[in-house]
Computed example of a mutant assay.
Amino acid sequence: MNLRPLLFAALLAAGMHTACAATPMKLADYLALNGPDPTARLAYGAAPSQYAELFLPAGSGPFPVAVLVHGGCWTSKFGGITQLRNMAGALAARGIAVWNVEYRRTDEAGGGYPGTYEDMHAALALLAAQAGRYPLDLQRLVAVGHSAGGQLVQWMAGRGRIPSGPLHRASPLKVPAVVSLGGLADLRNEAALIKSSCGRDTAELAGMPGPDRPDVFVDTNAAELMPNGSRTWLVTGELDTISPPRVAQDYAMRARKAGDAAEVVILPGASHYDEVAATSPAWPQVLAVIERALGRP
């Protein structure tokens, strides 16, 4: 029996009373997050950042699956996969398998356009290949992304609509549900916010236009890859200044107008970093959204 998730759950529960009185988390608090070691680490490419961590709950399964994609402004200087082990351990303790994805970022060789998106494709393809090796129920799948990772998981949901080019894939693994935690998904309409919050230019995330691709958002902007048939929960801290609640409201409106289901959840008194911490007072609300996305009572 894998006891690590159960131990992590006990430690988490022991700290909840203290956490409830905590002030909103800051970047330093987020960078200090950690969690249990994964069950396995699997590479989907040759680069150092091309791998994913699998967390399996105790029991025989098959288990619903949460794909986690960290944020960090698409760069390597703001942490990433290690911090999301905090959430991964808490989800595994609830009987949810976790696929915690690392990827090449804009300041790494091969990152940006198209490499970062190709990493998302490859990580999901590797997950699909593991369903026969591990007790994973890919019919119950949710992609959960934070900040820049929110953009990437929202892109995952619509990637099947990309008709051609380097990011087209035939019959990719379907992502039926998305939970975007303070996501910055609309590259076209939120370019100014992405620049002010993260210091990133559109060209780093979407590439440069050319004769064969005059509009750089046709295959990168999740907001334009709709309708995609997914259901999206946009979860944002009331005090989030990186991706304010207005961003979630605007994206949800656009999704509904396109014909997709989208729901906004505002976390009272929470910052951008509370959204992703299992020790935060906001965690029970975030967990409830993830379990709802998986169809759990």
Rank of each mutant, 00 (worst) to 15 (best):
V235K: 02
S271C: 13
A258I: 11
R254H: 12
G259T: 14
T232E: 14
D240R: 08
R256S: 04
R246F: 09
P268H: 08
R246H: 08
P268R: 00
E238W: 07
L234S: 09
W233M: 00
H272I: 05
R246W: 13
A261V: 13
A248S: 15
R246N: 13
M253L: 14
W233K: 07
T236V: 15
V265F: 02
I242Q: 13
A258R: 14
I266S: 10
G237C: 06
D274G: 09
A270F: 01
E238G: 11
M253P: 00
G269Y: 10
A248Y: 03
V265W: 01
A255Q: 14
E275H: 06
V264L: 02
R231L: 01
T241F: 05
A258W: 03
P268V: 12
A261F: 02
G237R: 04
Y251N: 13
I242Y: 14
A262D: 09
P245S: 09
E238V: 12
S271N: 11
E263L: 08
L234Q: 06
V247E: 01
L267S: 13
A262C: 10
D250Q: 15
W233A: 04
D240M: 10
R246V: 14
E238Q: 15
S243I: 07
Q249R: 10
D260F: 04
D250H: 05
P244Y: 03
H272G: 04
A255M: 14
A262V: 10
A252Y: 00
A252P: 07
A258K: 12
T232M: 07
K257E: 14
G269N: 03
P245H: 01
V265R: 11
M253G: 15
P268I: 06
Y251G: 04
D274N: 07
R256F: 10
E275V: 11
D260L: 01
T241H: 13
Y273C: 05
Q249P: 01
G259H: 08
S243E: 04
E263K: 11
V264Q: 10
M253E: 15
S243Q: 06
V265H: 05
Y251R: 09
A258H: 04
K257F: 05
M253N: 11
Q249G: 00
G237H: 03
A270R: 05
A270S: 15
Y251A: 08
V264D: 05
H272E: 05
A252D: 04
T236I: 13
S243M: 04
D260K: 01
G237K: 09
H272P: 07
A252Q: 01
A261Q: 14
T241V: 14
L267Q: 12
A255T: 02
D250F: 02
D260Y: 09
L234T: 06
R246K: 14
L239C: 03
A248P: 01
I242M: 13
T236K: 02
V264P: 00
P245Q: 05
P245W: 00
G237I: 05
G237D: 10
Q249D: 11
V247T: 15
Q249H: 14
Y273R: 13
I242P: 00
A262T: 13
A255Y: 00
A270E: 05
E238K: 07
M253F: 12
Y251W: 09
E275M: 14
P244A: 03
T236G: 04
